[in-house]
Design a protein around this nucleic acid. Structure first.
Length: 151
RNA sequence: UCAGAUGGCCGGAUGGCCGCUUUCCGGUUUUACCGGGGGGAGGAAAGUCCGGGCUCCACGGAAAUACGGUGCCGGAUAACGUCCGGCGGGGGCGACCCCAGGGAAAGUGCCACAGAAAGCAAACCGCCGGUCCGCAAGGCAACUUGCCGGCCGGUAAGGGUGAAAGGGUGCGGUAAGAGCGCACCGCGGCCCUGGCAACAGGGACGGCACGGUAAACCCCACCGGGAGCAAGACCAAGUAGGGACGACACGCCCGGAAAUCCUAGGGUUUUCCCCAGGUUUUUUAGGAGCGGGGCGCAUUUCCGCGCUGUCGUCCGGGUCGGUCGCGCGAGGCGUCCGGGUAACCGGCGUCCCAGAUGAAUGGCCAUCCAGCCGCCCGCGAGGGCGGUGGACAGAACCCGGCUUACAGGCCGUCUGACGCA
């Protein structure tokens, strides 16, 4: 069994992950990753935060989001549900611990066959999470060749 | 059979694997996790357009005003702009559908273009009568007749414009005409009958006056305090504002100080007095009360209430987080019983039926069922195989409505046409 997966809930956490600019866009989804801030909640005092990464809390955390480009609320919720199911299948075993991940739904998320959606997530993890050290320079290099691999 | 009208209902099914949320039971190391059982989106959950419950705030009271809404009558309902049943008007052969459907003799405004004229009576072309001039014809003449034109008067039939032109049609009547008279229709108020009422039917009368527009202002009747679960309550942490108490300053502004009260002071004749005059000032002082005004309580009126600052102590406490609010209710269901034409109401029985908060109620697979496409078989009804494939849309405090979106399908009632019997 892999690591325990926590959830990202606050807008500020999503913004922090997005600010690292370490991401990979697969046909069915977009993955963003950031090293879990060792001092995740310094401003508001450590005592009030329920889950501490260092103690027995989740080893990695993931958040899901969808813009209105995907569709109405029905479409957005369905996209998030598929991403949630895919994340539950892949992340605990394959994702590097100590990171925060954000999965972003796309229009293709709804139509993509589920097996390919899982494959998209694996490739994205390899490009982003499995490198162990997602430096900004290396994250920008790979994009060209990965595009045809997903087809 | 075809075409149509209308009411109601459904809105994929079953299974497997893996999850989410909630609740109950059991276990443990009772914090958290494990095991087992149960519940887990809609007819519109949507738009947030009305009406309520609930919560807080404002609330002193009353009336009026303003603002907003509603608008045939009766009923239903917690309430409604909803629903039901009627009435009136309009459309349709019909079933049936549609209607912001109070008041236009309370007042103001507007009625484009066209037209002479658009609301109060008028008259452009006309028609008719009188008169004058001219011309022509006739006549011995006075004059007569006809025509053109001017002037005065009578008309509103006809023409023409318009959405709308001062009732309509017909007959009489007249110089020409005209409700001028008559008949029928329309209109008006009156009376009678039916109806709870809207209204309908009838009668005699009037003699046409009263154009339309209220989705222009307006008038009338009735209804309405505001904000919303991000309401609101609590918990941990605790900044600013805030509140309470105490102290001090002395409490919106102006006025006058005759009388009243309080405090302090002074005088002293001590059951009392601090007065009068004058003055630029030297007036016992301060306060309350008093009179007037300002601001606030939507506006106005009447009465009513309230108005300041510093310091100290204590209480309390923004955002974020957590718990509650939070689902037994105007509740669902019933070949049930009773009342009612119906909306609906009463009774009986039975059931407990989502509570998330980056927001659960799902992800994937298989089979089946509609539907669609292609091929094959069959005279035909139909059958077989393969592929494709399920709309609009996701609770966020809760109910009653309205409106809008919606693949496909099911059931009932009724109307018209055609055919058959």
């Amino acid at each position: 069994m892999g690591a325990v997966v926590g959830r990202l809930k606050r807008r500020s956490e999503f913004l922090r992950v997005a600010a690292t600019r370490c991401k990979w866009a697969a046909p069915g989804l977009i993955l963003q990753a950031a090293r879990a801030a060792c001092s995740v909640p310094p401003p508001s005092g450590g005592a009030s935060v329920p889950a501490l990464p260092s103690s027995g809390g989740p080893a990695l955390r993931v958040g899901f989001t969808c813009s209105k480009k995907v569709g109405n609320s029905v479409a957005r919720n369905r996209a998030k549900r598929r991403l949630r199911a895919a994340a539950a299948a892949i992340l605990p075993a394959l994702a590097a611990p100590g990171y925060d991940y954000v999965l972003i739904g796309r229009q293709e998320t709804l139509r993509r066959p589920y097996a390919q959606l899982l494959q998209d997530l694996r490739i994205a993890l390899k490009r982003v999470g499995a490198l162990r050290e997602p430096r900004p320079s290396t994250a920008e290099a790979p994009p060209p060749l990965a595009e045809d691999k997903g087809e």
